[in-house]
Design a protein around this nucleic acid. Structure first.
Lengths: 195, 195
DNA sequence: GACTTTTTTTACAACGTGTCGGATAATCAA
DNA sequence: TTGATTATCCGACACGTTGTAAAAAAAGTC
């Protein structure tokens, strides 16, 4: 989960922000979110408390920015896999996502695993809603008497929640295997394009 | 979401706790959870701040106790409907749940709707996991090559998330209609007993 | 009405927050 | 390398929150 930079940025701010983010992740592993203070974050990051405020308005602002970065990373991971394996299709996109999550297991276990931080959940849900909204086959829905928005709620929640449980349980299945499970679970519905 | 009492309890504590709970719900409607303080809760409840600590250790403790009460209410609502309509089956249990949520819309919109409070999400998820674990048809899962735990993750997350979205969007469908949608979405899988 | 329990009042120390101004150190540009 | 720029650190401040204490006042119980 590294900083994305095109324009040259003072390496000091990169270092500071990275230290702060690492500190926050560490603290989220160790204690409930409401016990985390700017004091503790700064202390853990070996950064002066005042410096925190030079980068973030408060802890929530920091989390929002981190969630935004996460979204960018995920979208990159999903398109990247499509380019590598030219097959295309949602199965590949899903696999890219799962592999990305597995590669950043520590981060994702903390922010959607254990208790989770709502803001990250929301952003992830947004991603799934968008993806599924595109991939839903409307005529079959209508035929079966299923409302599109309900189907999207259902599918995105199932996806997010299953991945969260997978992460929470320390990923007992490989990304490949889980992607296959999704295909089996979703394809049975004929409502979502999974391959 | 009223207090459940068998042994007689001083009406003052009932009144105080009800005022505190109402105040918390109100504040959750108005501001982000991290802006809510014991000060504000007590002020809104027209209760002295010190009195808060006579009932709860802190805000998180208060939320945990409220979540526990919610679980009891939900289980009551689910069994109650089964008794009324003698048909039995998970469809009726689900309908009882949805009607209960609709009847307490204000409460549920706040705690699982808007941004939501993790502790309530967890408890609800526990309920669904338990229900679905009982109702899952294992032989069909094995036949289809689907892991049982994955199916349970999937089903419970879909259920919880769909209901959350339904509440978030001010319940655009009746409980009956949504229960039917669930039946359509789940029955297509032949994995879950929905009727 | 006497007794018990709850709530209130006032007070306290410890901590967290957000923001100063000025000193120090690191980076950049020439 | 030097000088200018920018980031970080340091000490300090006012203010709000937390959790607890002891004693008085109020409400409920029998």
């Amino acid at each position: 989960m590294n900083e994305i930079q095109k324009t040259k940025v003072d390496p000091r701010v990169l270092r500071t922000r990275q230290l702060l983010k690492n500190a926050l992740i560490e603290l989220l592993e160790e204690m409930e979110p409401d016990k985390i203070t700017v004091n503790r974050i700064a202390e853990r990051a070996t950064i002066n408390r005042v410096t925190f405020y030079l980068h973030y308005r408060d802890i929530q602002d920091m989390m929002e920015k981190m969630a935004e970065e996460m979204v960018l990373e995920i979208e990159k991971a999903m398109t990247k896999t499509v380019e590598e394996k030219k097959t295309g299709g949602d199965d590949v996109i899903l696999l890219g996502l799962l592999e990305h999550i597995a590669a950043n297991a520590k981060f994702y276990k903390v922010i959607i695993g254990s208790r989770g931080v709502p803001i990250f959940h929301e952003r992830l849900r947004d991603i799934f809603v968008k993806k599924i909204n595109d991939g839903v086959t409307k005529h079959i829905l209508a035929e079966k008497g299923i409302q599109q928005d309900v189907a999207v709620w259902f599918g995105s929640a199932a996806m997010l929640g299953t991945i969260a449980s997978w992460v929470r349980n320390d990923m007992p299945y490989s990304p490949q295997f889980l992607a296959r499970q999704f295909a089996l679970l979703f394809r049975r519905e004929d409502l979502y394009e999974t391959d």
